[in-house]
């Protein structure tokens, strides 16, 4: 019972955050709503037994991406700006379109014959997933893992090249 209540609370928190991002009038508020969603998602991961992912979510998203976003906001707006900085246009057509997407997906959700094994895997429940994930990354997923590092390196170089001031010689 407490488990269910806790789940609903976190789910509500997550979804509320998401809508905050969508509807907030100030981009800084949007960013903080995004944080709520990300935290909520981390909570859901814990519920799903993905402890390592929850930690990664906190570190990468909340600690990294969100801070980066806030920096970008600071760099592109005057701090003293109090006016609406998060203009939204064409809400009604968008809402209609999103409604269609929602209906389609909800239909799929209801109709699909989900295969649920129902078993809680010992790893997920008991000893934590870090060991298994580490093993998988150095085993069957080694190649994607290495490719990921190349992608990150490229992104790193790319971000530096893009954001520095152009030097003309």
């Amino acid at each position: 019972m407490i488990y269910a209540a806790l789940f609903y609370a976190i789910a509500l928190f997550t979804v509320a955050g998401a809508f905050g991002v969508a509807f907030s009038e100030n981009v800084v508020y949007s960013a903080f709503s995004l944080m709520a969603t990300l935290l909520g998602a981390a909570g859901l991961y814990v519920f799903l037994g993905a402890d390592f992912l929850a930690a990664v979510q906190l570190l990468v998203y909340v600690g990294g991406i969100l801070v980066l976003t806030l920096f970008a906001i600071m760099l592109t707006h005057q701090i003293s700006d109090v006016e609406v900085s998060n203009r939204a246009v064409g809400r009604w057509p968008a809402l209609g379109l999103v409604g269609f997407v929602g209906i389609a997906m909800a239909t799929a959700l209801v109709r699909a014959p989900w295969k649920v094994s129902g078993e809680v895997v010992a790893k997920a429940a008991g000893e934590g997933t870090t060991y298994g994930i580490g093993d998988a990354f150095l085993g069957p997923f080694l190649l994607p893992f290495e490719l990921a590092s190349i992608v990150l390196l490229t992104a790193l170089v790319g971000a530096i090249v893009l954001s520095r001031k152009e030097i003309r010689d």
Binding site: A50, L53, Y61, L68, W114, G132, F141, V151, A159
Partner: peptide, 30 residues
Amino acid sequence: SRFGTGGLEGQIFSIFVIMLAAAEAAIGLA
């Protein structure tokens, strides 16, 4: 991953997604 296979594959894919999101955020904001 939790309810379907019970394995770790879903979590591993999520890590790749997070990784790509980080790269995307860095490049996008740049």
